[in-house]
Structure formats: structure tokens, C-alpha cells
Design a protein around this nucleic acid. Sequence first.
DNA 1: TTATATCCACTACATATGTAGAGATTTGCG
DNA 2: CGCAAATCTCTACATATGTAGTGGATATAA
Lengths: 188, 188
Amino acid sequence: MAAPDRKTVILETVIRLLAEQGLDGVTHRAVDAAAGLPQGSTSYHFPRKAALLAAAADYLAALLGKDCDALQVGFAQRASDQGMDAAIAYVGEELVSYADSSRHLFLARMELTLAASRRDELAGVGDRLTDAARRPIAFFLKLISNAATDATIDTCAGLIDGITLMYVTGQGPKPTTDQVKAVFRAIT
Amino acid sequence: MAAPDRKTVILETVIRLLAEQGLDGVTHRAVDAAAGLPQGSTSYHFPRKAALLAAAADYLAALLGKDCDALQVGFAQRASDQGMDAAIAYVGEELVSYADSSRHLFLARMELTLAASRRDELAGVGDRLTDAARRPIAFFLKLISNAATDATIDTCAGLIDGITLMYVTGQGPKPTTDQVKAVFRAIT
DNA sequence: TTATATCCACTACATATGTAGAGATTTGCG
DNA sequence: CGCAAATCTCTACATATGTAGTGGATATAA
């Protein structure tokens, strides 16, 4: 944590603002203020707004990647300590509790995915984010089922995102591990 | 179609802009221009931007309601003409083809739901939209299964939204009727 | 018809925003 | 140290945006 890089501070603030205020809450000045940096800092490091958003998306994808790595490490530990079943249960629990623990990461991803789907300057950003979000799903899918094609993974990732979105926006109940497992089994 | 009401033209344009450009593409002047109305028209009818968005959301909810009504009428016709199985198949097909036919309605709903979840001025908007989107899901669910609780309907609506969102943003494959049915069966 | 209220087109203005640039400051390195 | 390069802070400016106001057109009712 010692002396966090300026750009990193900015990108983390962008992700937080995306989650809290949406795309139009992200302005150069708003980022400066929210990060406690002097006005002009964000403009200096990311003069183009599209580049700022693209950089934030890549940073977000990296964060998602780290979470997925941690998940796999946690799985491996439990698999050797408590056996396969407990390890699988752990991954399932982590996936659903992720809706709470990483609410802002999820919301930021939704904002960026939506924006990327219609803004040419953000071409590719959506794919990188989706790929990062797919990884833990694919991991879990392969744990509980042997037959997991790309199409199946896509579908499951979409399903998980959907119930998470409804939950996170206050429009639906919190997903449960059993539901997730049932859905996965139904698809595969 | 004769002499469409000014406010209606404006609200339809807002929904189109929401889908095409997102929340930050919706400004009073942009709506005027996209609707081919003189500058100031949108400002006159909806001075507050929050009121403009709320009105657009209610209009969108009404559109979704009409589509659902049409779905139920279509179902009733086919049920008497071709029997129950064909009627159920029809509803299932309509639900998945909706991702294409009403792409812009779906995207606008996502934008508004996301915005409503964090902006106090839009309180209630998200609920009305979600309720409208839930209706056809609930209808289909009750057709293919007898046991359909509110929680089940919520979950299924979220699942459908998720795969639709991934498809519509170019991040996933097009959902199929079989998948939808399988998911519904798994949940109920 | 006239009176009246609504609807409409246009203009005005304060603020917010993206972007650029000019100095000041810090950092890396011989 | 001394100097060059990178980094930072601040200011400036053209445009975009939300919002208000001002007449004129139009419809409606007595």
C-alpha cells in the first residue's frame, strides 16, 4: 500500500464513481475531487475521457483476474485440507457472496460493458471485461460438471450476471448457492 | 399514428436515445434534435431532467405492458386454434425473439434500472420497470409449471435479463427456448 | 367574436465539462 | 551536486448543458 501510484489511485476512483454515480458521474474534475487530488490530475494522466474509461476497464479486468486467482488458491487449499466436496462448496459460496463483497466492481463492470457495446472508442473493452468475469464461472462449472463448452460458460455467466444485477439494484432476491448449482446443472 | 402527441414523441425519443447512447446521451437538446423538434421543446414539456427520465420510464413500462398483453392474446388464440402445447411453444419463442425485436426497449430499461438504483429522484422507477418486465416471465412460468412463487419469478426474470444483456451487448450467444425452459424447470 | 389559458419557438444565462498549455516541482542519473 | 526529464498543479477557454424567461401562436369556451 506504500505510496500508491497516482494513476492507480485515479483508476480506482473511476471504478468507485462508476459504481456510485454511473458513467455520467465520471468527469475529470469529479475524479480529482473524489480521489482528493488537485484539480487537473486526472486530466493530466488521461487527457482523453475514452482513454480514461478504457484504462479503468483494464484495471478492473485485472482486479477481477486477481479475485479469480485467489479463488483458485482457496479452492486448492480446501481441496487438500477438507476434501473435494468442501472445496467445491467453498467456491460456490464465494461466487454468491461476491455479489455483496464486490458490489462496486460488479456495477462498474455493468456500466462499462453497456458503454462499450455502443461506443467505438471502447471497442474491445467489453470483451476483456467479460472474459475476466467468465473465468471464475468457468472454473466452478468445470468443478461441478465435466462437460462445459464455451457456449455453456457464456450462458452461465449471463445467468449469474442477471440475478446479481437484479439483486444489486434492489430488484430481486439474493441468489443462493443452491440456485446457482441448479441452474448450472440444468444448462450442462 | 395521426398527430402523435408532442410529449409522446419526446418520450419515445428519450427511450431510443437511452438505448443508442446511454444515459449521458440524453440531454434536452439531444432529444430535440433526435426528434426533429425545435430546440426548447423538451425543456418546455419536461423542465427537470429527473422528471423527463421518470416519465420515459413510465412510458417504457406501459410499452412493456402492452407487449405482454399482446403476448397473452396471442397465446389465447393459439391455445384455441392449435392446442396448448403449440401455444406454450409460441410464448417461449416470443420471449427469446424479444431480445431482437425489442432490443432498444431492453437496453433503455437496463439504463433506467441502473440509474434508478442510485438516484433518489428516480425512486420507484426501477420497481415499476421491473414489475412490467416480470409480467411476461410470470405468465410463461405459470404455463410450464404450476409452482411459481414470487421469489421464483424474480429469479427467473433476473436470469432471462442476464443472458439477454450479454447477447444484446455482443458478449454472449443468443438464448434459445430450450435453455430458457431448462432454466425455468431447474428453478421451480 | 373576444377572452383566456395553454402550447410553442426562441433566446439568455450560469454552471459544468473536455481539453490545452504554462510554470512549478519532483525525480532519476551522470 | 547539477541537469534533464518526467510529473504535477494551476489557470484558461470553447463548448455543452440544465434551467428560466419572453413573446407569439393556437386552441377553447362564453
